[in-house]
């Protein structure tokens, strides 16, 4: 919680925080619109980050939905500056929780036939495997290929390095906000980020040349 304390001190006590202290823990229409704008701004990127970490579309939708609900339910009365680190902290907690559960499931049920099937190993919908008759643009192909390599490289990062890189580089959070979202010190964020860059540089070197 030290990250949020420093974030709050930096942002100052907003009027909404004061009203929360008075027990007026409710949202008016303008605040709901503000929350709508915030969620609309982060939902796509959050989904892609979750999809990249979990490699499962349904799981990614689930963790994003839970993060949205938790933010709206428990933290909507916080200041707007706090929403982004809070949202991503909830999101990464959900991702870690799902990864842990999948790990346990693999450990106990991995010997069952078909238990180790993964979305990127086996296509979930046979219709999606049917080639499109329309010619695919080269640009689209290049983007898909680049994203596939980035996805793969990101997925191979340790969890904390993935969080540091996705928050700092892909989401554009500064070091303090990233530390708040990861619930660690700023020095730890820098260390994880540096190691993530090193790992990605090695992983993507061949692809980019």
């Amino acid at each position: 919680m030290q990250g949020f304390a420093s974030l709050e001190a930096r942002a100052g006590r907003s009027a909404r925080n004061v009203s929360r202290d008075r027990g007026e823990d409710r949202l008016d229409a303008a605040q709901v619109r503000e929350l709508d704008r915030f969620l609309a701004g982060v939902e796509r990127r959050a989904f892609r980050i979750a999809q990249c970490a979990l490699r499962d579309t349904d799981d990614a939708h689930d963790v994003v939905q839970v993060a949205m609900l938790r933010l709206a339910q428990s933290y909507a009365s916080r200041s707007v500056e706090e929403w982004k680190p809070l949202f991503y902290r909830i999101l990464y907690n959900g991702i870690r929780d799902l990864q842990r559960r999948h790990g346990v499931r693999r450990r106990f049920f991995g010997w069952l036939p078909g238990a180790s099937r993964h979305e990127d190993e086996v296509g979930e919908d046979p219709l999606e495997q049917v080639p499109d008759s329309a010619p695919e643009p080269l640009q689209q192909l290049a983007t898909d290929e680049a994203m596939r390599h980035l996805d793969h490289a990101l997925h191979r990062l340790p969890a904390r390095q993935f969080e540091a890189f996705s928050l700092r580089c892909l989401e554009g959070l500064d070091v303090a906000a990233t530390a708040a979202a990861m619930d660690c010190s700023e020095g730890t964020v820098k260390t994880h980020y540096f190691r993530a860059l090193q790992a990605l540089r090695a992983e993507l070197a061949e692809v980019r040349t």
Binding site: D36, E43, R48, T57, M68
Partner: peptide, 29 residues
């Protein structure tokens, strides 16, 4: 690359994200 993949999310995904957001807003309201 990441931004390009975000921009290319399909309509079904966007619709599902929108539904999740509306549910969250309904909870807040």
């Amino acid at each position: 690359v990441f931004q390009a993949s975000v921009d290319e999310l399909d309509a079904a995904t966007l619709s599902r994200l929108n539904r999740s957001r509306q549910q969250a807003l309904a909870v807040a309201e």
